[in-house]
Design a binder for these strands. Sequence first.
DNA 1: TATAATCCCTCTAGTAGCTATAGCTTCAAG
DNA 2: CTTGAAGCTATAGCTACTAGAGGGATTATA
Lengths: 136, 136
Amino acid sequence: MFSIGQLSKRTGVKIPTIRYYEQMGLIDAPERSEGNQRRYTKEGLSRLSFIRHSRDLGFSVENIRGLLELSQHPEKPCDDAHSIAVQHLKDVQDRIAKLRRLERELKRISKCDSGNVADCAVIETLADHRLCETEH
Amino acid sequence: MFSIGQLSKRTGVKIPTIRYYEQMGLIDAPERSEGNQRRYTKEGLSRLSFIRHSRDLGFSVENIRGLLELSQHPEKPCDDAHSIAVQHLKDVQDRIAKLRRLERELKRISKCDSGNVADCAVIETLADHRLCETEH
DNA sequence: TATAATCCCTCTAGTAGCTATAGCTTCAAG
DNA sequence: CTTGAAGCTATAGCTACTAGAGGGATTATA
């Protein structure tokens, strides 16, 4: 049996976040000690580790809900798990592409070595979209 | 003079967002018509365009506040504008690096072509961080 | 056993940057 | 003069937490 603090240390999930996940129904409410403190089992630990890891990989809480549900049913087909993962991969790739366009533009802007605001490329470009090279 | 709807169309900023910016003090409260509706000038238009463009480039509202303040003082040195832009560029690059690590891991996971959850790489990897190749 | 240090409890509110809704008023065209 | 679109305020909701107040529980040491 672990206290919430021990669970937090083992999983790297902060204490208020654990309570938040419980409130969201992502983890079951655990048993309580006589003094009303949460006491977790190994199941609780592995479920929270799953969540932590999924969050690290950027899955949304809603997706994690689905993935957890699936993981409880090993006999089911795993097409849903695949499509969640593949969709998430696409989202990540979209975000990368978008950020790379931003990066190019920001690099160009930041090169300005003017002394004052009147002819600073940063300010000028922000004020006028037509000075941009890429779409965004 | 533009109504809020016309301003919205010209800048691409949604109406509730314009009112939100006003509340945040990012744009000045404009004059009102007799019937209490907002009426904007060309200054209002260009300020909002500046904001829109900065948001598109991913600057935070707080950074935009600083950049707007600077843009009002053309005689000032523009070191601050540079450091905001350079810092933002760094943030963007960090996020790209992080997302690329995610991308690698998600690609690896998604390749699983198992039929059911019991031996699905997606679920398995989420349950056990040790199956990952990269850090995150 | 007493006490101090640490941990845990609930509840509420705050973060960023909007977006949505309800219930009303004003404006512009026919 | 009427009707439909557009605008008004105020409030609440979104994601995924995080922080703080004001208490009670547990544990280690004296």
